[in-house]
Write a protein that binds this DNA or RNA. Structure first.
Length: 152
DNA sequence: GCCAACGTTGGC
DNA sequence: GCCAACGTTGGC
């Protein structure tokens, strides 16, 4: 069992958007970075838990928790010509990008802002806080997960 | 909107 | 396989 952090821009897909989906489940589509993809493809498993993180917005931070309910499968948006995630080099037989299904678990009463994570000494080595980090899917150590939960 | 940091592309 | 140019991310 592995913990994760998943970034999303709330104006594209927010935790409230997830709440509107059937069974509160949706595909985590549009990951187009190889490192992030490899984490999802090779390490992410059903029952893993992930923080839902809002980025590129007024107050970036952790807003809740989701559970992985379906492991890696080809991301359908790579085949959709009209999608901004379309990839002409992907084929059905040889898809380049994958997605997983996530299910809503919990929304925090208030956002846990990035600024508060930065204040935690326990999180000084957390990948999210590393200078220049741009990964949209990253593993979270047990200790880091617990430290973040402890800030709520 | 700025810009630092990083990833990707493509010419050689 | 190198690396310059370009594109993207994401906090501020």
């Amino acid at each position: 069992m592995q913990y994760w952090l998943l970034k999303s821009e709330p104006h594209t897909f927010s935790i409230d958007d997830l709440l509107t989906k059937p069974n509160q489940i949706d595909a985590w589509e549009g990951v187009r970075n190889y490192t992030a993809r490899n984490f999802m493809r090779d390490k992410m498993q059903v029952k893993d838990l992930a923080f839902f993180y809002h980025s590129s917005c007024e107050i970036p931070g952790v807003v809740g928790i989701v559970e992985i309910v379906r492991a890696a499968y080809p991301d359908p948006t790579q085949f959709e010509k009209k999608s901004k995630y379309y990839d002409e080099k992907s084929t059905i037989l040889n898809p380049r990008w994958i997605t997983v299904d996530v299910k809503f678990k919990e929304k925090f009463k208030e956002i846990l802002p990035l600024s508060r994570l930065k204040e935690s000494i326990k999180l000084k080595d957390f990948v999210l806080l590393k200078k220049g980090n741009r990964l949209s899917v990253m593993p979270v150590k047990d200790m880091e997960w617990n430290a973040i939960m402890g800030l709520l």
